[in-house]
């Protein structure tokens, strides 16, 4: 059996709120496999955003260990962790966070440009990704000239353009109607799920739970369910 894409051991995260210490995650142990679409589900405040932030190397755990494709990411020096994210992780943010002043293709090319690739070459690769996402004709438009769905596709292209091994997606369907939401999930499955790539989706949208390969339910900072479907109580 191959090693898990992500492996967390005893991951705990505390936050200070004035004099009070609040523990948001309580010793999370997880193994997430590549080639699967894993949903991280839970109510607001359950700790899912904190957990996903820790799993993708942008928030330090108070305790515990996180290995991404065998690398203990919080053992890396700061610069190497940033480089690790740049090479291995693709992000799709809920609000897309596209840069308003540059065109869609350039937005999607940002990870490649940050890696040091020539801008024209990076843009070409982004346009190739746009073709897969059926938005090649939108490459030269500014984000403000695109619909919400098109902006989301640009964000997906930006997450995948550098062929990362882990794709992290935050509430991809939160602002969409049911049909559009399912279309986005189909698209993600088509382009983001691969044999050597893990795909984690944070959501509390019960309309798409049936599209998951695995669902992890968090409550009060603990994983209370791990299965192919949602537990009946939810």
């Amino acid at each position: 059996m191959s090693a898990p894409a992500i492996c967390t051991r005893d991951v705990t995260r505390d936050f200070q709120a004035g004099q009070q210490t609040i523990t948001v995650l309580h010793g999370i142990d997880l193994d997430i496999k590549a080639g699967e679409m894993t949903f991280l589900v839970g109510e607001s405040g359950s700790g899912k955003t904190t957990l996903i932030s820790i799993m993708c190397g942008i928030l330090w755990p108070t305790l515990g260990e996180v290995k991404v494709f065998g690398t203990d990411i919080y053992d890396l020096p700061d610069d190497e962790l940033v480089e690790f994210r740049l090479q291995n992780i693709g992000f799709i943010f809920q609000q897309y966070n596209l840069i308003p002043a540059i065109d869609a293709a350039s937005n999607a090319a940002v990870p490649l440009i940050a890696q040091g690739m020539d801008r024209a070459e990076a843009r070409e690769k982004a346009v190739a990704m746009f073709e897969k996402l059926n938005i090649a004709d939108q490459a030269d438009k500014l984000p403000s000239q695109l619909s919400g769905g098109q902006q989301q596709r640009v964000a997906i292209a930006r997450a995948l353009v550098h062929e990362p091994r882990l794709v992290v997606c935050d509430e991809p369907t939160a602002a969409l109607d049911a049909a559009s939401g399912r279309r986005v999930m189909d698209l993600l499955r088509e382009v983001a799920v691969a044999e050597d790539r893990a795909c984690i989706i944070v959501t509390h949208d019960n309309r798409i739970f049936d599209m998951a390969d695995r669902i992890l339910v968090l409550e009060d900072g603990k994983v209370i369910h791990d299965g192919k479907t949602m537990p009946e109580t939810h």
Binding site: C56, I58, V82, E83, R85, Q87, F91, N97, A114
Partner: peptide, 16 residues
């Protein structure tokens, strides 16, 4: 700041 935050998350270094 959101864009800068996104760039930092993606892997743009502080030096960049």
């Amino acid at each position: 700041i959101k864009q800068f935050g996104a760039l930092k998350a993606i892997g743009v270094t502080n030096r960049q």
